[in-house]
């Protein structure tokens, strides 16, 4: 499934590849919205991958006290390593396959995944012992236990972790889209078309109007996502909370 998502991303990027407008003094609102769309697509793909990876990692790490003692320190080290330190290496890998978006998605994924993993581990650890005992007593084991008990029980923490992860993604997006600074002898043409790269490009070229418009659109997008997605999901997740 993660490979499928990456494949879809590759096709989408090839179909809608647009250069970053660096030289014009003005930029149309449609271009800004398209840039926002690309940025959201990268964030969305990275987020989906982060969720798909986080859930099994969290389940694995909490499977037994031994597993927890083994995996938690390991995860702690991974999440402490600065993500941007990986970026030049990641870019070099993706340059070879000429898939720059892959580099951006990977860095976004790495910035998101640990937020979700650690909140999910916290969520699994607070499942009441009576609930686990009841589930096992009534025959819920293995996959059935995962689908019917563990996954629903994780929903509140998944939503909280997702909000944190997406916020982290927005923080990283500027770096993730402005690839040329990490490529030896790189040029702005190697940057990815997105709201992050437009912000950097506008700032570098003194295009204050473009910069302000891009900034406003980013803020509005973040606010709308918060209002229409995260707030609704937070309310929905209340139902999954244990008293």
């Amino acid at each position: 499934m993660p490979l499928g998502v990456v494949a879809i991303a590759m096709v989408a990027v090839k179909l809608f590849a647009v250069a970053v407008p660096v030289s014009s003094d003005t930029i149309s609102i449609n271009t800004l919205l398209a840039a926002l769309g690309f940025t959201l697509m990268r964030l969305g793909i990275a987020y989906i991958l982060a969720v798909l990876v986080s859930i099994p990692l969290a389940v694995l790490a909490t499977a037994s006290p031994t597993m927890e003692a083994m995996f938690l320190p390991m995860f702690d080290i991974f999440q402490s390593v600065p993500i941007l330190a990986f970026f030049p290496v990641i870019i070099l890998i993706f340059i070879n396959v000429k898939f720059f978006t892959g580099a951006a998605i990977t860095i976004l994924f790495l910035s998101m995944v640990w937020n979700i993993v650690f909140t999910l581990i916290g969520g699994i650890n607070v499942i009441p012992r009576d609930i686990i005992a009841a589930a096992h007593l009534f025959g819920l084991w293995g996959w059935t236990y995962f689908w019917k008990v563990l996954l629903p029980a994780m929903v509140p923490q998944l939503v909280t972790g997702s909000i944190l992860a997406f916020a982290q993604g927005w923080n990283i997006i500027i770096v993730a889209e402005v690839l040329h600074t990490y490529i030896p002898h790189g040029t702005a043409a190697q940057d990815l078309f997105g709201i992050g790269s437009i912000l950097v490009s506008a700032s570098a070229h003194g295009q204050s109007t473009v910069f302000l418009w891009a900034l406003c659109i980013t803020i509005v997008a973040i606010a709308l996502i918060n209002f229409f997605i995260w707030q609704k999901l937070l309310r929905y997740a209340q139902r999954f909370r244990f008293e």
Partner: peptide, 11 residues
């Protein structure tokens, strides 16, 4: 079994 806390699935 009936549990002290009820142990119902809240969702």
């Amino acid at each position: 079994m009936v549990f002290q806390s009820g142990a119902l699935f809240p969702w």
